[in-house]
Nucleic acid binder design. Structure first.
Length: 641
RNA sequence: GCCGCUUUAGCUCAGCUGGUAGAGCACCUCAUUCGUAAUGAGGGGGUCACAGGUUCGAGUCCUGUAAGCGGCACCA
């Protein structure tokens, strides 16, 4: 057989030769340094026989493509360590994940945090033992028998559930064995010691809460210690951006026990909200939306009609009056919007009707899912429903994709990609319906210049949807924005319009949101900007800080002048050193500090200091008002000037 | 909801093997008028999450509850 090397050279080899043997034929040091082979684009163990003509490439340990294998192997080293230290613990699965790995164990007594250093220590010993890692192909039934015999019920179950055609491979690592697909590094030595066990968690077997709960140990692993250190530093940095910390230190909002998942917005946080809401309102007005407001609490019979009582009840805040009337806080705005659509007669001439609401919703979310502003029980959606004809879906969707990308960009985030969530296993509607629906959303995205990423099976049970994923400043991804097709609710609630031929027709609804919820989006913005908002969003835009009390009356004038220019300005005339004031307002992330002393008071100037820079810009007060006034314009208002 | 961890002053945290609470920042008062990231001195402030229990004695040990944190599940 013939192998082709990356430089294009081709050489003949005996069929079934291993990659390692090929490497040794080239140079012993290559064979020693190689971590994995890439055969026709697939990562393979070095000792795996090559069965026919192929392209071959050797990957060294520092190759980025090897990192996942290092992580996967580290999880195996951990599993070996755990089984040595805690006999009777069963292994289940242990994959590489982003930045690290985990392994799920079945064990009566849970692990404690104190166990982690012991496990790490044993892992280092296993690395030092330089255990050879070898691949073996086993007979299916023998493998099941073997794993059952040694008490590894989960492994036996995995094999039982594998399709008959699957090759059963077992990796031997010293005296330890694990059922695994591979590939793996040649020995535990090559796994290295740039790892750290990070957290303990419960996790359900096969991700299903009806199954047994396993003990998961998470870790991180890297090719080098330097990479590990850099990662740990990155975690620390991310922690500093945590919106819950910044929310407290910047006095934006708080939450308390009596209102789990409910937000108390403080004046500065609410200012941020108002700025965002005003911006969104202008963008929606310009995009041809009409805004409405629907009731917060509606009778049970209403939710029965909409279908929520049956399907969504556990998540609803239900209340009862003295007279026994049962009502619910709205968990969604859509049924309310359909009421407005249904009120009176609609004509095809009114379509597409884009009905928006900053709708405050309440959902009883499971206690364990609450997380700062990101997952709350009371939230306000930037919701809208587009009522349209079927032939308008593509155009409306395309317009929405464009609007969403523009708004995300204005708010400091790029739409990283758009998911097209397709038909789930359990679904309503025919295959023809799904073909058509998925086709329309995909076409619309492409019309708007976006190639959607297919999220197989992630759609709602009655229709597909588009999800917009944005990336923040430190590379984290957030799902913000969604568009969901809906033929069902208009049907349920009897939405109709009169068509050109006088017949009654049913509109299609597009549920759509750009921010998702204000709470969550503001949380994301806080983390994205690390609290240092651009001028137009900052709650306090300028602080006028005096150097001595001599400058106070001039400082007061400066505050008034800047306020007259539309800026949110505060004066700091306290008897404190300018160093102290500069530090305090910098820590509070105020974008501009306008310093005024005796000199400025005499010349009618201000010394502007921008957050993050220690330079000064000395301009006349009027000039400062002009510059900052222009700079503080929201992006949508700036475009027109 | 499930698993693990945590809960001490407004915030961040210290309090060893049980002997009755401490720091920094913040806050208040006084002095200081000082040109770009912390001026000095003084002062006030805690039912140690809550409820039981063990003990002569509990912030410290045990049990339960609640909330927070990290995951899992959930997010039609």
């Amino acid at each position: 057989m013939q192998l082709q090397f990356p430089d294009g050279a081709k050489r003949d080899y005996e069929t079934g030769i291993t990659a390692r043997a090929v490497a040794e034929g080239i140079s012993p040091s290559l064979a020693k340094r190689a971590a994995l082979a890439r055969i026709d684009g697939h990562l393979r163990d070095l000792d795996r026989p090559i069965e026919g003509d192929a392209r071959i490439e050797f990957l060294m340990r520092d190759d980025p493509a090897v990192l996942d294998t290092i992580r996967h192997d580290t999880s195996h080293v951990m599993a070996e360590a755990v089984q040595e230290l805690f006999p009777g613990t069963q292994v289940t699965i242990g994959p590489a994940i982003e930045d690290g790995f985990y392994y799920d164990f079945a064990r009566e007594t849970p692990f404690s945090l104190e166990d982690l250093p012991k496990i790490e220590q044993r892992m280092r010993e296993i690395v030092d033992r330089d255990e050879k890692i070898t691949r073996e192909v086993w007979d299916r039934n023998e493998a099941i028998k073997h794993f059952e015999a040694i008490g590894e019920a989960y492994k036996a179950e995995i094999i039982t559930d594998l399709p008959e055609s699957e090759t059963i491979t077992v990796y031997r690592q010293g005296n330890w064995k694990d059922l695994c697909l591979g590939p793996h590094l040649p020995s535990t030595k090559m796994v290295g010691k740039a790892f750290k066990l990070t957290k303990l968690a419960g996790a359900y077997w096969r991700g299903d809460h009806r199954n047994a709960q396993l003990q998961r140990i998470y870790g991180t692993a890297w090719a080098t210690q330097a990479d590990l250190d850099a990662y740990l530093l990155r975690l620390e940095e991310a922690e500093k951006r945590d919106h819950r910390k910044l929310g407290r230190s910047m006095d934006l909002f708080h939450m308390q026990e009596e209102g789990r998942g409910m937000v108390f917005w403080h004046p500065k946080g609410w200012q941020l909200w108002r700025t965002l809401e005003a911006y969104m309102r202008r963008r929606l007005d310009a995009a041809g939306y009409v805004e409405v407001k629907t009731p917060q609490v509606l009778d049970r019979s209403f939710w029965e009609k909409s279908g929520h009582w049956e399907k969504y009840r556990p998540n609803m805040f239900v209340c009862e009056t003295e007279e026994g009337e049962v009502l619910s806080l709205k968990p969604m705005n859509c049924p309310g919007h359909v009421q407005i659509f249904d009120y009176g007669q609609r004509s095809y001439r009114e379509l597409p009707l884009r009905m928006a609401e900053f709708g405050a919703c309440h959902r009883y979310e499971p206690s364990g899912s609450l997380h700062g502003l990101m997952r709350v029980r009371g939230f306000t959606q930037d919701d809208a429903h587009i009522f349209c004809r079927e032939d308008q879906i593509v155009e409306e969707t395309a317009r929405f994709v464009e609007l969403t990308r523009m708004i995300h960009k204005d708010l400091g985030m790029e739409t990283a990609y758009v998911n097209l969530a397709t038909r789930p296993e359990i679904r309503a509607g025919s295959d023809e319906f799904w073909d058509k629906a998925e086709g329309m959303l995909g076409e619309a995205a492409r019309l708007a210049g976006v190639k959607p990423v297919i999220a197989e099976g992630d759609g709602a049970f009655y229709a597909p949807k588009l999800d917009f994923i944005v990336k923040d400043a430190i590379g984290r991804e957030w799902t913000c924005g969604t568009l969901q097709l809906d033929y069902v609710l208009p049907e349920r609630l009897g939405a109709e319009y009169v068509a050109e031929d006088g017949s009654k027709q049913r509109p299609v609804m597009l549920h759509r949101a750009i921010l998702g919820s204000f709470e969550r989006f503001i949380g994301i913005m806080i983390e994205n900007y690390a609290g240092a908002f651009p001028l137009w969003l900052a709650p306090t835009q300028v602080v006028v800080a005096t150097i001595t009390s001599d400058a106070e009356s001039y400082g007061q004038r400066a505050v008034e002048t800047l306020r007259a220019a539309g800026l949110r300005v505060e004066g700091d005339f306290r008897n404190e050193k300018i160093n102290y004031k500069v530090r305090e307002h910098s820590v509070a992330k105020v974008p501009v500090i306008a310093v005024v002393g005796r000199k400025e008071a005499e010349t009618g100037q201000v010394a502007l200091r921008r957050l993050g820079s220690d330079g000064q810009q000395i301009v006349s007060l009027e000039e400062a008002a002009r510059i900052l006034g222009a700079e503080s314009l929201p992006p949508d208002l700036r475009e027109n000037t």
